[in-house]
Simulated scan of single mutants.
Amino acid sequence: MSSDSSQNTAECSTKEYEDNTNENGEMNAMVNNLRSSIEGVQNSFSAIYSTLAINLKQSLEMIQAMNSMMEQFLLSNINIKIDAQEESNPNLLTVIISNTSQFPAQKASCNLTFQKKGEDKDAIVKIECVESVVRGIKNFSNSNSGLKPSSPLSIFVQKSCIGSSTSDVLFTLPPQTQIIEKLKLIPSELAQYNAKISLEFPSPGTGKPLQTEHSFDLYLME
């Protein structure tokens, strides 16, 4: 074989090698570019998901904080007062429950319990509703509901006169409204009692039970 032929063959081989090298280089570049693009998309999605997770967490925390503030506000604006008319009738108790907030307390229930002084167990005290009135706080003359004695609409109607006097009545305490009830208390024996009124209703935001209480002492006659 002549030297010219060998040279031509070598040049062809070199050219093919260079072509293959260029093709491989282009393919590698394309793969690298594609890999970079995929990694960029993945990083973008990761950043989006991270931002979304942070925003959702912040929104949830804000909602929880708002619910907590509303619950505390509502509880702080519900007041329970009592007036025991010991001179005229020591067994007549007037209970005043007020809602001075702008939100209603819905599906509320009341619990009135008694314990003899120095004892831990509930005492037997029968309750009879003498009068029940619902009226606006700002306009006391606007009495929109006068209930008859022993009316089933009384918030202190008993399931039983034995032990706890838990009511089975659910009611709504509207905003800027008072419920005033006069209750006749009939104890099983003459004694000094520790009494407690509990008002419970679900949170308007979360539904969890909220409760406010008022404790007092009184002397009851048979």
Rank of each mutant, 00 (worst) to 15 (best):
E23D: 11
S13H: 10
G25W: 00
S88Q: 05
K116I: 11
L74N: 15
I124G: 02
N99M: 07
G146S: 05
K208G: 06
Q115V: 06
S98I: 00
N67Y: 12
I127H: 13
Q158M: 02
E131L: 04
S13E: 10
C110R: 11
I127V: 15
N32C: 12
Y193W: 08
Y49E: 15
G40S: 14
N89W: 01
Y17I: 03
E119S: 12
S154R: 03
L34H: 11
S150E: 01
S143D: 05
I186F: 01
A29T: 15
E87A: 12
S88M: 01
N20W: 01
A29F: 01
F45T: 14
M30P: 12
E189N: 09
L56C: 10
I197G: 13
L199C: 12
A105W: 04
V134D: 08
S154L: 02
L52F: 08
S76W: 02
N144Q: 05
Y17S: 11
L199D: 14
L93V: 05
F103I: 11
T14G: 08
E200P: 01
P209S: 14
E131G: 09
P174N: 12
P152F: 00
S198A: 07
A47M: 13
S50C: 11
M1P: 08
M30T: 15
P202Y: 07
Y219A: 06
K184L: 03
E181Q: 14
N139I: 05
E213V: 09
A108W: 00
V41E: 14
A105D: 09
G40F: 07
K15D: 10
I155C: 06
